[in-house]
Amino acid sequence: MTDVEYISTGIENLDKLLEGGIQRGFTTLILGSPGSSIEILGKQIASTDDVLYITTEETKDDVAQTMERFGWGISNIDFLDISSKFTQQILKGIGRPMNSFEQKSKSKILELIKEGSSSILPDSNRKFDYLADLLDSIKKTTRKKIILNTLDFFISEYPEDKVFRIIQEIKIQNSGKKTALFIILTKGVHSEILEKKLEGISDCVIELEVLQKGSTFERFLTIKKLRNYAKRIGIARYVVESNGFVLETVERIM
């Protein structure tokens, strides 16, 4: 029997819960409800091994700043900063909606007609294809761990079926290259079907939940799915300390 190769999640107790870490080539979906500190989990996973970190909501500098605060280095990280690209596009005025006054003005309509009938979509004006950029970066990377923080951005910018197809392609890439891919998704804001479909194609599903108990909140990390290792499904209560995630009580479900 050949030994299965694992990649550490960067969180000691999580590795223990997973009995070694994440198997190489696995796609892990991390679902978290708002307030679960899911964005920190992504960064902590990025703190070990060589990493491709794709950031969509925060800029590279934001990420670096937060990681420093927790004492995690970033020298091991290769960033794909989609957040900054997106901001630049917005600032360039592409995607700036005309207001209704502008729309109604006659000169604006004539200008629109002129533009619409005279030009082909010029390159500088074309909306940047973030999905293509994502796929391309993942295809090219030689890093061991890939963290996509978050998928939410793509779902809000593209049709769900298109996003799903790209994720399927990325998963195949990941499996072929024996890297470990972590996809971070906010729970409960997208369609349930998409969530289920994503859970379906993932090899491992981790969910972060916040439950109200009396006047306090308790946070739980659940390993909902682990392909080929049903026994490792389990649940742990966690807190986020100054050095990151601390998993407290661990409980096996099966």
Partner: peptide
């Protein structure tokens, strides 16, 4: 008149998808 609707919708700032 032949008009590319994608250019129009882009100028209106509509999400292309």
């Amino acid at each position: 008149n032949i008009i590319d609707l994608r250019i129009i919708s882009e100028r209106l700032g509509l999400n292309s998808e």
